[in-house]
Design a protein around this nucleic acid. Structure first.
Length: 581
DNA sequence: GTAGGGTTAG
C-alpha cells in the first residue's frame, strides 16, 4: 500500500505523489474547455494553416465587425519602443550608475539572467554595487518569482556594509508580505526602519497594505492606514486601490463603490486606475449596465476612461458571449480617439477564435503581422492555446516555429501550451525535450500539466524523473495542484489517501480543495467519510461559506441523491454543515 | 532603484 502524501511536504510531495499512485482505472480524456465547433477548414492559406471560413451574419453577430478588423488595426498603437539591450551588453562606464541603468533595462524586459550576469560582473571587477544596484537586483529577483535568492542578496547587502534606504527596505516588505505572507516580519521591517532613522514612506506602507489586501486581511490593512495617519504619512490613491481590489474580489461591490465615494470626500480623488478596478469588479459580477452608467457619468465624476478601461469592459463582455456589444464598445473607444493597444488586439483575437474559429483568429494574426504591428507572445499563445484545445498539435508547433523565427521570445505560457499539446498527442518524450529549450523555466502550471498528463498515461516513473529536473525552490503548489492530485487519488478510489492529502495542507483546510474532494466523496457515496472530515474541520474552527453549500448541494443533485430515500444523506451533511457554520 | 488597473497556458 502506498504511503500517504502530506501536502505540507509539497512540492516534494508532488514528486512522491506520483510514485504512490500505482493503479489508474480509466484513461479519461481531457475535458475540453470548449465545445466550440469549427466550420470547414479544407482549403489551405498562404501560411499553410487552413483558411478562415466566411461566416454568415446569422451565424456570427460580430461578422460585420470582423470584415472591418483590418481597418481598425490601423489605429493600433505600437507600444514597444522601450530600449531593450542585447544580451551580453556592457555598461557605457564601469560604475554603479551605468551598471544600474543596464540592469534596470534588462529587469524591465524580464531578463533576470542578464541582470544577475551584470551584478556578478560588477562585483568581479571590484565595482562595488551601491544601494540602488542592490534594490534593482532585489526587485528583479522578486519579479522573476525567485524570493529565496532575493533574501540572500539582501543579506549580502547588509554584510557588505551597504546601508539599506527606504526603497530597499520597501522591497524587503514586499518580500515578506507578497511572497511569504509573513506580515509579522513585514511589520518588523517597518519597526527596524523607524529604529534606524529611515522612516517608512507612503510606498512602504502601501506595499504592506497591498500584501494584506491580497491575502484577504482587509481589516489589518485598515489598521495600517490608521498607522499612517497617526505617523503623519498621508495615504494617496495608490494606498486605497488594494482595498478596492479586495472588495471586488470578495464580491463586495457596494463597499467598493462606497470607498470610491469616500476617496473623493477625503481629498484623495480616485483616478482612472481606481475606476478601472471598479469596472473590472462590476464586469466580473455581471453588472454590465452599471459599467455603462459609470462610463456615461465619467466626465461629471472627473475621470477619463482609457484603453485599460475599454480593454477590461470589452474582454469581460466577450467572455460572457456578448461579443456584439463588445465590438460596439470598441467602436466607441476608437471614436473617442483612444488607441487600441496590444492587449486590445489580443482580446479581439481571442474573441474571434470563440465567435468564429481559430483559423479566422490566425488569419487576423497574420493580417496584424503584415501591417507591421508589434504582436507579442500573448498573441501567439492565444491562437496556440485554442489549437491545443482542438488537438491540432502540428499547427501548434508551426506557430511556435513562426514566432521564434520572427524573433518573438516564447514565454513560460508558450512552452506550457506546447508541452500540453505534445502530451495530449501522446508524445511525452518530445514534451520532455522542451525542458532543454533555451529560456524555458517551468512553473506550477507546467507541473500541473505534467502531473495530470503523465498520470493519465500511467507513466509515473517518467513523471518522477521529469519533476526532479524542475527547480522546485520557487514553485508553490496551488489549488489546481491539490485538485489534480485529489482527482488522481479518487479516480483510483484511494479516498482515504485523498482525505489525508487535503487534511495535511500546510495552510490548513482550503475551502475550495475541500469542496473538490467532497464532490468525489458524494459521487462515490462516501458520506460517513465526508461527515467525519467535516467533524475534524469543525474542531479546527473552519466555517462553511455559501459557496461551499452551493457546491455540495450541486454535487448531490448531479449524482441523483436528491430523490427518493437517499435524500436523508443530504440532510445529514447539511445538518453537520449548519452546525459548523 | 520601491506601491495600485486590462489580454494568453493547467
Amino acid at each position: 500500500m502506498a504511503a500517504c502524501i502530506s501536502s505540507s511536504q509539497l512540492p516534494t510531495a508532488i514528486r512522491s505523489a506520483t510514485a504512490t499512485l500505482d493503479l489508474f482505472i480509466n484513461a479519461i480524456c481531457l475535458r475540453s474547455r470548449s465545445r466550440r465547433s469549427l466550420r470547414g477548414h479544407s482549403t489551405i492559406s498562404n501560411s499553410g494553416l487552413p483558411a478562415a471560413t466566411v461566416v454568415s451574419s446569422e451565424e456570427a453577430p460580430a461578422s460585420d465587425f470582423l470584415s472591418r478588423f483590418s481597418d481598425i488595426l490601423k489605429n493600433f498603437r505600437n507600444e514597444s519602443h522601450e530600449y531593450i539591450p542585447e544580451p551580453g551588453a556592457k555598461p557605457l562606464e564601469s560604475d554603479p550608475f551605468h551598471y544600474n541603468l543596464l540592469m534596470k533595462a534588462f529587469s524591465r524586459a524580464g531578463n533576470i539572467d542578464e541582470v544577475l550576469r551584470l551584478f556578478r560582473e560588477m562585483k568581479e571587477s571590484k565595482c562595488d554595487p551601491n544601494v540602488l544596484c542592490y534594490t534593482t537586483v532585489l526587485d528583479a529577483l522578486l519579479a522573476a518569482n525567485r524570493p529565496k535568492e532575493a533574501e540572500k542578496v539582501f543579506d549580502e547587502m547588509i554584510d557588505s556594509g551597504v546601508t539599506p534606504d527606504a526603497a530597499s527596505f520597501t522591497v524587503l516588505v514586499k518580500f515578506y508580505s507578497f511572497y511569504l505572507k509573513k506580515f509579522d516580519s513585514a511589520n518588523e521591517v517597518i519597526r527596524w526602519m523607524i529604529r534606524s532613522g529611515c522612516d517608512p514612506d507612503v510606498v512602504t506602507y502601501t506595499t504592506l497594505i497591498a500584501g494584506l489586501c491580497k491575502a484577504g486581511l482587509v481589516e489589518d490593512a485598515w489598521d495600517v492606514v490608521d498607522q499612517m495617519l497617526q505617523g503623519k504619512c498621508a495615504p494617496n490613491a495608490h494606498s486605497y486601490t488594494p482595498f478596492l481590489q479586495a472588495y471586488c474580489a470578495q464580491g463586495k461591490i457596494e463597499a467598493a463603490i462606497r470607498l470610491i465615494e469616500s476617496m473623493r470626500s477625503i481629498g484623495c480623488p480616485p483616478d482612472v486606475v481606481a475606476y478601472n478596478i471598479l469596472v473590472n469588479g462590476l464586469c466580473k459580477h455581471g453588472y454590465f449596465d452599471e459599467v455603462a452608467l459609470l462610463l456615461q457619468n465619467s466626465v461629471s465624476d472627473g475621470w477619463e476612461p482609457d484603453a485599460v478601461t475599454y480593454n477590461t469592459y470589452i474582454s469581460e463582455l466577450c467572455k460572457v458571449g456578448k461579443a456584439d456589444i463588445a465590438y460596439k464598445q470598441l467602436n466607441i473607444m476608437l471614436g473617442k480617439k483612444i488607441c487600441p493597444t496590444i492587449v486590445t488586439l489580443n482580446i479581439v483575437l481571442d474573441s474571434i477564435c470563440q465567435e468564429s474559429s481559430v483559423w479566422e483568429g490566425n488569419h487576423h494574426l497574420e493580417t496584424s503581422l503584415e501591417l507591421g504591428l508589434d504582436v507579442d507572445a500573448v498573441s501567439y499563445n492565444t491562437i496556440m492555446s485554442r489549437l491545443c484545445e482542438i488537438g491540432r498539435l502540428s499547427w501548434v508547433l508551426k506557430l511556435f516555429n513562426d514566432m521564434v523565427k520572427k524573433g518573438i521570445n516564447p514565454n513560460t505560457e508558450t512552452f506550457n501550451i506546447v508541452i500540453h499539446s505534445l502530451c495530449k498527442a501522446g508524445k511525452l518524450r518530445k514534451a520532455k525535450c522542451i525542458f532543454t529549450s533555451k529560456g524555458f523555466v517551468a512553473d506550477i502550471v507546467t507541473c500541473n500539466i505534467l502531473i495530470h498528463e503523465f498520470h493519465m498515461a500511467r507513466k509515473f516513473g517518467e513523471l518522477h524523473n521529469l519533476l526532479s529536473e524542475i527547480d522546485m525552490e520557487n514553485i508553490r503548489p496551488d489549488l489546481v495542484t491539490y485538485n489534480t492530485i485529489v482527482d488522481s487519488l479518487c479516480r483510483n478510489r484511494k479516498f482515504l489517501e485523498a482525505i489525508d492529502f487535503v487534511r495535511s495542507a500546510d495552510v490548513g483546510y482550503q475551502s475550495q480543495a475541500v469542496a473538490h474532494l467532497s464532490y468525489w466523496l458524494i459521487r462515490h457515496r462516501k458520506i460517513s467519510e465526508l461527515i467525519s472530515l467535516f467533524n475534524e474541520m469543525s474542531e479546527q474552527g473552519l466555517v462553511f461559506d455559501a459557496q461551499m453549500f452551493n457546491h455540495l448541494i450541486k454535487a448531490f443533485c448531479t449524482f441523483g441523491s436528491c430523490q427518493g430515500r437517499e435524500i436523508y444523506k443530504i440532510c445529514l451533511v447539511l445538518d453537520k454543515m449548519l452546525e459548523i457554520g
